[in-house]
C-alpha cells in the first residue's frame, strides 16, 4: 500500500482534505522516513490540490522532488569503474555481487575488487559471491592497504580489458574523517589508471534521517553519482532515499530486495511513484 493511497481515497470526490486527513498524511509520510523537512514541503504544496486530480497533482509534486539526472550507469569508453561505498552494514558486499550478476547477465565481463580489507572475512565473503555469480575477484590480504588493492585491480582489469570493474570498499561511518580520507585515496589511486565513472552509495532502507548526513558527506568526499537502496523487501519504506534525492540531487539507481543475487533491479521512478500514490 502506497503512503498516499489512503489519502487519495479519502479525498476522492471532495473539494479538499479536512485537518484530520492532513494529520494522517503527515504521520504516514513521517512514518515512511521522508523526514520532517520533505514531509512539510510536500504537504505545503499539496494543500492546493483538489480531490479529483489528486493522483496527477501528487505525482507532479513528488516528481519535482526527484532528481532529473540519468539513472542508467554512466559508461566509460575504457573499463567502466564503479566504486561502491557506504556506512557499515548497509549491504555493500551483497550489492556489489548483485550488480555484478546484473551486468554479467546482459553479457558484460565484470571484475570485482575486494578493497574491504578491514572487516573480518569481508574478502572471503566477496570471493564466495564471486564464485556464485561467476566473476573474478581481485583481492589483497586482509589488513592490506585498500588503495593498493584497488590500484592493482584497476591495472589488471585494464590489461584484461574487461567491461566493468566494481570496487567493494569497507564500511565506514561518514563522521570518521580519517576513514573518509582513506576512501578519497582509493578513488584517487584508481584514477591514476582508470577514470571512476560511478560512485554508488549504498543506503539501507531502514535508515532514518541520518541517511541525508551520510549522502552529504560521502558526496563531498568522493562525488557520489547514485544510490543503491537495499533491504526494500522488509517493512521499511526507505523514504530517506527520496529525501536524499530531494535535498542533494543524487539519483537512486538500483534497489535491492532480497538476499539472492537476482533480487536487484534498476530503479524505475514512474512505477515507484505510482506505487506510493495509487496502489
Amino acid at each position: 500500500m502506497g503512503i498516499f493511497s489512503q489519502f487519495v481515497a479519502k479525498i476522492k470526490g471532495q473539494s479538499t482534505a479536512d485537518p484530520q486527513d492532513w494529520q494522517e498524511l503527515e504521520a504516514e509520510l513521517l512514518g515512511a522516513d521522508l523526514g520532517p523537512t520533505l514531509t512539510f514541503e510536500i504537504i505545503r504544496s499539496a494543500k492546493s490540490i483538489k480531490g479529483d486530480d489528486a493522483i496527477a497533482s501528487l505525482t507532479q509534486i513528488l516528481n519535482s522532488h526527484l532528481s532529473a539526472k540519468p539513472r542508467d550507469l554512466i559508461m566509460s569508453n575504457d573499463v567502466t569503474v564503479v566504486m561502491v561505498v557506504g556506512v557499515n552494514g548497509t549491504g555493500k558486499t551483497t550489492s556489489v555481487a548483485k550488480l555484478a550478476a546484473y551486468l554479467k547477465s546482459s553479457g558484460n565481463s565484470v571484475v570485482l575488487a575486494a578493497a574491504d580489507t578491514f572487516r573480518a572475512a569481508a574478502v572471503d565473503q566477496l570471493q564466495t559471491w564471486g564464485k556464485r555469480v561467476g566473476v573474478d575477484v581481485i583481492a589483497g590480504k586482509e589488513g592490506a592497504e585498500p588503495a593498493s588493492v584497488a590500484f592493482d585491480a584497476a591495472t589488471r582489469t585494464k590489461e584484461l580489458n574487461s567491461d566493468y570493474l566494481i570496487i567493494d570498499t569497507a564500511g565506514r561511518l561518514h563522521n570518521k574523517s580519517d576513514l573518509m580520507a582513506e576512501l578519497e585515496k582509493v578513488k584517487r589511486v584508481v584514477e591514476k589508471t582508470l577514470a571512476v565513472s560511478e560512485v554508488l552509495l549504498v543506503i539501507d532502507a531502514t535508515t532514518g534521517q541520518n541517511g541525508i548526513a551520510q549522502a552529504k558527506i560521502f558526496a563531498e568526499a568522493v562525488e557520489v553519482t547514485g544510490l543503491i537502496i537495499t533491504k526494500l523487501d522488509g517493512s521499511a519504506r526507505g523514504g530517506v532515499a527520496l529525501a536524499i534525492e530531494s535535498a542533494l540531487d543524487i539519483p537512486i539507481k538500483f534497489i535491492g530486495t532480497g538476499e539472492g543475487d537476482t533480487d536487484f533491479a534498476l530503479f524505475e521512478p514512474s512505477s515507484y511513484l505510482s506505487g506510493l500514490i495509487s496502489d
Binding site: 512514518g31 532502507a205 531502514t206 532514518g208 541520518n210 541517511g211 522488509g234 517493512s235 521499511a236 530517506v240
Partner: peptide, 15 residues
C-alpha cells in the same frame, strides 16, 4: 539494532 535506524525501528522491533 543499528542506531541509525529510522521510523521502521518500531515496526521491526514489534515484529
Amino acid at each position: 539494532v543499528d542506531a541509525m535506524m529510522g521510523q521502521d525501528a518500531v515496526r521491526t522491533a514489534k515484529a
